[in-house]
Design a binder for these strands. Structure first.
Lengths: 158, 158
DNA sequence: TTGCAAATAAGAATATATATTATTTAGGAG
DNA sequence: CTCCTAAATAATATATATTCTTATTTGCAA
């Protein structure tokens, strides 16, 4: 997903090319560690260049980006959504329950599933699916061995 | 999952048997249409019998119920969580993007997945997984044909 | 029956996301 | 280049989900 291509998509679909939109796009482009961004994280980056952009502008544009297929919306059960550039290659994620780190996996359960059987049996038209693996990354496992584990006292990560 | 068994679980684990807890349990037990409940829905039911139970009591006890394995926490990307009695039989859900209706499916992608390969390759310890199929139920598809479809303008169901 | 840790109620706070409205602006028409 | 308008934004307010704090109450073990 190149910047020019995205700009072209905006134009093609009648969306204006505003500095705010470009800055939100840059936030995604510059996100090198590849960890999907929350709305707030995107906002924080945008505000560095345009201090009075509101978070509602971010939310409004995330809808536009999603509509154009530029980004994917993800839910890691944190009580908020995260967003990543659409790489064009369908994938899922490993998510660390301790530190929140994510890693892409290529495996997709939808390939092995008998879609038509389910659709017919349940009279249901499948449009999309979610699949995430939750657990503990290497670093957090090492850390835990030293510290001993604490109990979860919030619903967010239960 | 019988009521007596749950009460026994409370006792065994040192949790007190309060009327609030019993009432929350009843909300789950009496939920015959099988649609997982939101915290607010549970609260509404409890308040019918105990008008001044606060929603924080519901949330606090949901954590306890989860801890004891009495309920499952579900996320259908609505911006809130839902909860269902743990039937003991692992399953996933179909979720209608229009009306929110859910239906249980027995298929589980985790069975066909090569867990150990992923765990070794990624140095990741898998603890749990999410899998949901989103789409449109029969009723909503019929309705849509008459009305024509509207575009999503909110992030919640995108 | 009593004591106390656990649980609750009340009220407030925080976080995420959305709605409203007046103002600004991108970009096409002239 | 200038003007115009629909689209986008900023500012403000609001909705909704969830959590925190603290004083009070209560289940239940001793």
């Amino acid at each position: 997903m190149k910047e020019d291509y995205v700009i072209e998509q905006f134009r093609k679909n009648g969306y204006k090319i505003t500095p705010q939109r470009q800055e939100i796009l840059k936030a995604f482009m510059g996100n090198n560690d590849n960890h999907p961004l929350s709305a707030e994280e995107i906002h924080r980056k945008v505000v560095e260049s345009y201090p009075n952009v509101g978070i509602d502008t971010v939310y409004r544009n995330l809808i536009v980006f999603l509509d154009l297929g530029i980004i994917n919306k993800l839910n890691f059960r944190e009580g908020k959504s995260r967003y990543e550039l659409n790489s064009g290659k369908h994938h899922h994620h490993l998510v660390c329950l301790n530190c929140g780190m994510t890693e892409v996996i290529d495996y997709c359960p939808f390939k092995t599933l008998d879609r038509e059987k389910i659709e017919e049996e349940k009279k249901f038209e499948i449009k999309k699916h979610s699949f995430e693996l939750f657990g503990y990354c290497e670093l957090c496992r090492e850390k835990k061995e030293k510290e001993g584990s604490k109990k979860c006292v919030s619903l967010q990560s239960c």
